[in-house]
Each structure stands twice: as C-alpha cells, then as structure tokens.
Design a protein around this nucleic acid. Structure first.
Lengths: 173, 173
DNA sequence: CTCCGTTATGTGACATGACAACAATAAGGT
DNA sequence: ACCTTATTGTTGTCATGTCACATAACGGAG
C-alpha cells in the first residue's frame, strides 16, 4: 500500500460543506415538519407514498422498495406510527407472510395538512438556490455517485432508484 | 396562502435521488469505518480535528465549532468515546467552566490507522465521480444552500393554517 | 461587592435506526 | 411428499442524536 491519495485543501473544504449541508438540511426539514404538523421526517417519508397509492394501502414489501429502507427500520417505524394511529397493519391476501399497510383517516389528514408547507420548505432550501442548468449538473453526478455506491456493498440495502420511473408528485422525507 | 408550488416530476426525481444518496453514502462510510477500523463516523468526525491540533487537545467549545455539532450531541459522544479510551476530559486553565478534550494514545493510533482507508473511500464514492468543473459548480450551490439555511431559524411563522390541503403528490397543471 | 444576564457544559428522556437473530411461510428440486 | 433454500416481517439490543432542562462560572452594571 502506497501513500493514500489525501484530499487537497479544496476537496476537504467541499467535503466539509457537503457534510454540513447534509446535517443542517435534514435537521431544518425535520424541525419544520415537527413544528408545523407534528410529524417526523420518517413519518412523512412513509405517509407520502401511502397517500399516493390508490387505496392508501401498500404491501410492506412495496413500501420498503419505494422508500429504500431496510426492513427492520421500516418495521420499527410502522410500529411507532401504528401506535399513534397513523397507519394500520392488515393480513395480506394470497401470502400469509405478508403485511398490508393502510393509511388511516388520521394519517391522511396529517399528511395532507403537512404537505404544502413541507413542499414550500423543500423549494426554499433546496431548489430555489439552484439554476435550471445547475440542477441538471446536480442530477448528473447524483446518478454517478449512486452508481459508484452500487458497487460498494453488493448485497446490502434495497435499491430504490433503478426500478420504475418516478411518478409525478412529491415524496419528501 | 395560495396553491403550494408543487415539485415538477424532474424536481421530485432529483429530490429523491438526493435523499437516497444522503442515506446510502452515509451508511457506506459508516460501514467502511466500522469494518476497517472499528470506529464510527461520529468517532472519526471528532478524532480528525483533534489529531490535527498541535497537542492533540482542543477545548470543547472549539471542537463544537469545528464540527458544527450541537453541544449536547458533542457531550454525549465524548462521554461514549471517553468510556472507550479514545479521549479524556481535563479542566480548562483560565476558565473553570471549560473542558479540554485530549486525544489519548489509543485514540491517535485509531485515527491514524483508520485515515488512509477512509480517505480512499471518500475519494472513490464522492470525488472520483466528479469532474473538476462539476466540483466548482457543486461548491457554488453548496454555498448558496448553506446560506439559505442560515436565514431559516430567524423567520418562520407558526402553524396558522390547517387549511385544506391538496392531495400530497398531486401536481396541478 | 452583588445582582443578573450570558456563556459553557452536562444530563435525562425519548425517538431513530443499524445489525443480527428469529419465526413463519413460500418455492423449488428430487 | 420431503427436504432445502429463499422471502417476509418482527424483535431485541445497542449506538446515535434531539430537545428541554439543569448547573456552574464568567463578566459587566450599579
């Protein structure tokens, strides 16, 4: 092993800014959601795809694929949300192992009340500072970085991006 | 308040990719560190600035400023690291409130063993997929997004609305 | 010097999330 | 049918991180 390819000062600065942005943006959005609607970012991430599904119901497996979470994380989060009356679990017809996750009336009310202000926050903090040209550049290296990640741990997390095309709409979290 | 500025399909796709990248990159790096050196990302984040300071000592306040963490988070993490023998706490000369955080021998060994492989991972996953031009573009909007975040804590009206929301995910037009 | 607002750090309670081990069911080969 | 393997979810455990609050010491105004 030779000398590692240390970061240049410029690279170190960018890396530090990236990590700061990641932390602060995440925090700002969680706070905005909690303050304006009493939901956590995790709640919103799950309520959004559920609210977009035809009947407000998704199979556990489908929801996991949609949000790209590990199963245990999803299961824990659903347990917490079930306790708060946001979703319910039902048996899955045709597969006794499966679980259907259903949005409750309360859950739908919550996401619908939360969405406008949350979208506004995403715009203000993320898209408004971007020019259209920059957004394309951004998408380009998001794609390349995600591709680089695929090779990293071959069998670990469920891969969300490569599957179906994104539906028109909004799924923050 | 009128209709929210919902995300376009392109924006929604970029936003989803960004969140996926944030999650997967963070996870990949934590795993790389844990596997190769037994340190967590939080450990590394604190050991790095400590190891770069002249004596391997920083005042709590300086360390907090350096990494940008909340005080309580830093305090908790230092307690855990102290238990594992990575750092020690000492009194601060000249200010009885202060705490000096000192890297132990074990802590220095750990960060020095971890650094080469970690830097290599950062390169592979973050910088290698970027062209030099893209890196400058990236830095530009990192700066602008960070600036947008600064204004956030100041002005934000409490949740006055509860007005009826459009279906989350439904994009008008 | 005393009062008092500010600054510096610590703590407890709780939500979140990763990992590994488990239970149950489905699927597939022989 | 039988045995083996893969899929689906769930759970325990532990590290992390946030919030609200507690504590102590500094520093300036009177």
């Amino acid at each position: 092993m030779g000398e590692p390819r240390w970061l240049t000062p410029e690279e170190a600065a960018v890396w530090k800014k990236y990590r700061t942005l990641r932390r602060e943006l995440h925090l700002a959005q969680d706070r905005q959601l909690a303050r304006d609607s009493g939901l956590s970012g995790a709640d919103y991430a799950l309520l959004a795809p559920l609210s977009e599904s035809p009947e407000g119901v998704l199979r556990f497996r489908e929801l996991a694929l949609e949000v790209g979470w590990e199963r245990s994380r999803l299961s824990h989060q659903l347990t917490r949300m079930e306790k708060r009356g946001l979703v319910t679990r039902e048996a899955c017809p045709g597969d006794a192992r499966g679980a259907m996750i259903r949005l409750t009336r309360h859950g739908r009310d919550a996401i619908e009340a939360a969405a406008p202000q949350h979208v506004e926050a995403v715009r203000r903090l993320f898209f408004d500072p971007l020019t259209p040209g920059e957004m394309r550049v951004l998408e380009g290296f998001l794609d390349r970085m995600l591709a680089a990640l695929e090779g990293e741990s071959a069998a670990h997390p469920p891969n969300t991006s490569a599957g179906k095309a994104a539906r028109p709409g909004f799924r923050p979290g």
